[in-house]
Design a protein around this nucleic acid. Structure first.
Lengths: 114, 114
DNA sequence: ATAATTTGACCGTTATATGAATCATAGATT
DNA sequence: AATCTATGATTCATATAACGGTCAAATTAT
């Protein structure tokens, strides 16, 4: 991550992060699991869990999703136990194969206008 | 991330990552945006976008969500343009304030059994 | 009221994600 | 068919995410 860039995020992104963060904390508290316990089950440190529950954008998405999985939080409207996501994945990947593999800019008009 | 841990992910997590990855690629291709162009708009490098479209779990969640935002992909059933997510966020955060701030293990029975 | 544990806030270290660059391939347009 | 650009695959350098620990504060259970 060279060239330290101060990254900005859209409101939508910040809202989505905040939603997921509070869903995680709500689920954890409702299930009476301490931060330490959840972190251990997820194989992460308590400090990382802290950042996630604070909606820090700079966390590995895999870890965050794994927490959702452990806590039974639905992603893409599919609960971890339902198995729906697998089908959605297959469907979505099939759709992808129907699209062109590459995108190309339409050739510029040769006679450039002024 | 000291103590190099080989992290594992549940099927649910992998599916969710794959769904999001193919949603991103599908949207990008359908909107005829090249990887380079999208990366620039998102303020990331093309190589990072490549990893995200390959469902790599070790990417910043903020970047991934920002791509969803740019491409109009719905997170938590709310399109970026709708503004629904903001309300959902507020609601969810209010719910959180109603829960106990800490979790505590119920005290063990004093008269331990043998 | 007391006790004890959870949580928040740090900090230093280390593994690693990201950025930048290059090269080969091949798909899309003409 | 030919051209040209988009993509995939690598590699290296660097900023930083995650870890592990500590300490104080405060909430919850007794």
């Amino acid at each position: 991550m060279p060239k330290s860039i101060a990254r900005t995020y859209s409101r939508y992104t910040e809202d989505a992060l905040a939603v997921l963060a509070s869903l995680i904390r709500s689920a954890r508290v409702q299930q009476r699991i301490s931060a330490q316990q959840l972190a251990e089950r997820a194989g992460i440190s308590r400090s990382t869990l802290q950042r996630i529950e604070k909606a820090d954008p700079k966390c590995e998405i895999g870890i965050v999703f794994e927490l959702a999985s452990l806590l039974g939080i639905a992603l893409f409207d599919a609960s971890p136990s339902s198995g729906e996501l697998r089908r959605y994945r297959t469907l979505q990947e099939e759709k992808l194969t129907l699209l062109p593999e590459r995108v190309r800019q339409p050739a510029r008009e040769v006679d450039d206008d002024f």
